[in-house]
Design a protein around this nucleic acid. Structure first.
Lengths: 260, 260
DNA sequence: CTTAAACTCCCGATTTTTCGGGACTGGTGC
DNA sequence: GCACCAGTCCCGAAAAATCGGGAGTTTAAG
């Protein structure tokens, strides 16, 4: 069995994505997995995010052509957590027997149809030297009996987590280097930490908007005229570089400017 | 020596920040460190960021009253990297004997004056249940001879890294929970009975609304008519028991139904 | 005292959202 | 085949938000 230090060492000496791919494939085969992939999970709106891995081509094609990235419950979970998890820990809306299946349901069924009995997913949220934030979802695919998987995981969960962190880090570093001049391959999240200073009233107006109040409601609550509330909202939208009230509220929440 | 699994296990059973503090203190003392602290490094403009740890009170006071958080080279490095590092790996602008000392220089000297001979710093970039990105800086303080530190680090670097990740995560979860209870305005993860089930298209429509798109924009993006998008939005608003689009988007984000 | 910024209010025109209906198609399991 | 539901599309009217102006008051800092 691979030693942790050796595995990480072999990763850190890689200088191309191809080397990295093979290095990780060797490591995970040793653990019993059949293949892996890592994808850029930081941009929910992108149809085909950056991808690297060793999963079979027909699975990749299925995944892309069905737009699974938008409904994959694993990717969704990755965006809001930092701890690794198995597929069986993911809640998939149970199909209640009537009507159409949800997308999440289809993804998991499709994975099973491709022979994947289980999977181990590692989220990694990463900051690059420019301060840009990335989120990646790495998945190890299992094709053997699930029982063996459970046993392995109970013993090697942390090793896998750590290996994947160092691997993802190395991967992103290499990719960033290769595509320093090219845009759009690994898109960054929109400046999450640029300080925007809202005034008290702008924050008030946005907060009440976030709670579902109309301008008229808010005017009553704050005891000012509708015109004033509109002005505050307009200023807030401009400051946040948002395109409308809804957008501004979302941005303000993500920037920690308002609580709901 | 502590076993990794045991250490992480002891962390994951903690249910208060106080318990957590003592649990980690026990672990790191076993490694040979004297104390630790973790601080929120994600907001460079904040003078006194959230802090938790066991370092002596007079060090904390020195750190705060001198505004060290703005010049600490370790914190700066944490913001743009993901790998743990030792203090001696941090580049401090060498004092050339003339003019003023740089702030970074002062921080490191002050640490030394307080008896800290070395330190191990672990960056951790993570997302909260809303998908917002944060950064934390965790530091282990060493007061014994540096030689012993080097030996320890060469063998236990990865263990320390992993322990700190799980510790920081637990700390964040507990803090978030406390915050939620204090505010308690919006329900977060609902129990299965009241769980809202959006269809794929309803989620699409809401997601694009959250990104600032109008109904017309969304119709173009999803390649369907405006009427359909309106229908999806109306259904989503009704299901979420929201009063308008903005409210629905906020609720959906808090419930983990959409990603932005 | 001056200046800047926050806060307040108004107008009118346009765009967008909201609401309550109805109606057809196609996938799904029973 | 049937029932159910997701998904699609349409109508029309009312409500709300958006935009680009302008303009007065208060407050705190230089």
């Amino acid at each position: 069995m691979v030693k942790l230090e050796e595995a990480i060492g072999s990763i850190e000496t890689c200088s191309s994505t191809d080397e990295l791919k093979h290095a990780l494939q060797d490591i995970i085969e040793d653990f019993g997995f059949s293949s892996f992939n890592m994808l850029d999970a930081g941009n929910p709106h992108v149809d085909v995010p950056y991808y690297i891995g060793t999963t079979p081509e027909n699975w990749v094609q299925t995944y892309i052509s069905n737009g699974f990235v938008h409904v994959d419950p694993c990717v969704t979970r990755v965006r809001r957590s930092n701890a690794p998890f198995s597929w069986d820990e993911v809640e998939v809306p149970r199909y209640d027997g009537s009507g159409r299946k949800s997308g999440a349901c289809k993804v998991m069924e499709a994975a099973h149809d491709h022979g994947f009995t289980e999977g181990f997913v590692v989220p990694f949220h990463y900051t690059d030297p420019l301060g840009r934030v990335f989120s990646s979802s790495s998945a190890f695919y299992w094709t053997d009996p699930v029982k063996k998987y459970r046993f392995l995981l109970s013993r090697k969960r942390y090793d896998l987590h750590l290996i994947m962190i160092y691997w993802a880090q190395r991967a992103i570093d290499i990719i960033a280097e290769q595509h320093r001049n090219r845009q759009g391959l690994l898109e960054t999240q929109a400046d999450p930490r640029t300080a925007v200073a809202l005034t008290d009233r702008e924050r008030d107006a946005l907060s009440w908007a976030a709670r579902g109040k109309t301008v008229a409601d808010t005017a009553d609550i704050l005891f000012i005229s509708q015109a004033t509330v509109e002005t505050h909202l307009r200023h807030a939208i401009a400051k946040l570089n948002a395109s409308n009230k809804t957008h501004a509220v979302v941005k303000a929440i993500y920037l920690g400017l308002i609580d709901v």
